[in-house]
Write a protein that binds this DNA or RNA. Structure first.
Lengths: 147, 147
DNA sequence: ATGGATGCAAATGATTTGCAAAAGG
DNA sequence: CCTTTTGCAAATCATTTGCATCCAT
C-alpha cells in the first residue's frame, strides 16, 4: 500500500519548490474528494479553509502538480478540466449523461489495450485516458433523446 | 461500404433544417482532412472557399452536426475540441507529445472493454473516447523530460 | 413569403499573466 | 535575506449569443 502524503513534499523540495499552505490544502481537498473536482469546485472548497486564496493560485497549483506528475488532468464530457490524484492503478471513467455522475472503472483490458497498441503501432504510450459516456442504472429509463 | 454524402442532406431535411453552402463546405472539409481539425483550423480552411464565413457559423454548425450525430467532438490533449466525421468503426487516438500528430488506432479490445464495463457496472455505454498520449517512433529518442 | 441561418460584434466563461506584496527555507 | 508564491486585476483564448439581414425552401 503506497503512502500518499510524502510525494508532495519530496517532489516539491527536489525541484526547489516550496511547500505552502495553499498547496497542501489543495492536494488535501483533491484527495478527500477522490478527484473529479474542477478548478471552480476546488476554489469554493478551498475558500472555506482559506478565504483569501485566489482562483489563480488554484490554477497555478494544478498546473504545477500536473507537471510534477502528482495529479492527472482529465477531460470529461464537453466541459473544463477535472483533476485527480495520480491513480495507483490504471482506470477509466464512466460519465452518466443523465445525472452527470462520474464513476471509475478498472479492467485488465485497459492494460492489454495499451500494450497491444504499443506493439501494433510502434508508439510508446505514457498515458491513457478512457472515458465512456452513457447512462447509469437510475437514468437509463429516462433517457431523453432528440437534440 | 457506407455512402458518406447523403446523411447530411437527409438528416437535415428530416429535422427541418436547411442545407446551406456553409454547412456543406464545413462537412466537406472535415471529411477531406480525415478529422482531427479544431474550430480554428476549420475556420481558416473554410475562408479560403468562402471569405465571408464567420467563426460563429463554424461553431454553430459543429454543434448542430454533433447533435445530429454526424460528427464526433473529441477532446485531445489539453486543448480545445477537435471534430471528425462519425467513424464507421470504433477507434481511439494516439497523440504524440513530441510532434503533436494524431493517429487513429482500432482494436477489438476496445469493443470488448465496452461490453465488459457495461456488464460489470450495469452502465449503458453510448460512446467511448480513448486517447493514448505518448511518443511516436520519430519522437521517442528526443523525449525531452523535466517540467 | 417566411422561418431558419448567417455575419458581425459584443458577451461570457475558463484559464493565464504582470506586478507588487507576502512568506517559505 | 532572497527567491518562490500569492493575490488582485487585467489580459487572453475558446466559445456563445443578440440582433438585423439574408437565403433556402
Amino acid at each position: 500500500v503506497p503512502r500518499r502524503d510524502e510525494p508532495l513534499e519530496t517532489t516539491l523540495q527536489t525541484s526547489g519548490r516550496r511547500l505552502t499552505g495553499q498547496r497542501r490544502l489543495i492536494v488535501d481537498l483533491i484527495r478527500e474528494h477522490g478527484g473529479h473536482l474542477d478548478a471552480n469546485e476546488l476554489y469554493r472548497l478551498a475558500r472555506r479553509h482559506n478565504p483569501r486564496l485566489s482562483l489563480a493560485t488554484i490554477y497555478r497549483t494544478l498546473a504545477l502538480l500536473r507537471d510534477l506528475g502528482l495529479v492527472d488532468e482529465v477531460h470529461l464530457g464537453e466541459e473544463h478540466h477535472h483533476y485527480e490524484l495520480k491513480p495507483v492503478l490504471e482506470h477509466g471513467h464512466m460519465v452518466c449523461l443523465g445525472c452527470g455522475t462520474v464513476l471509475e472503472f478498472s479492467s485488465s483490458l485497459l492494460t492489454r489495450l495499451k500494450s497491444e497498441v504499443e506493439q501494433a503501432y510502434a508508439f510508446t504510450v505514457t498515458e491513457a485516458q478512457v472515458d465512456l459516456s452513457g447512462y447509469c442504472t437510475a437514468c437509463r429509463p429516462a433517457q431523453t433523446t432528440a437534440p
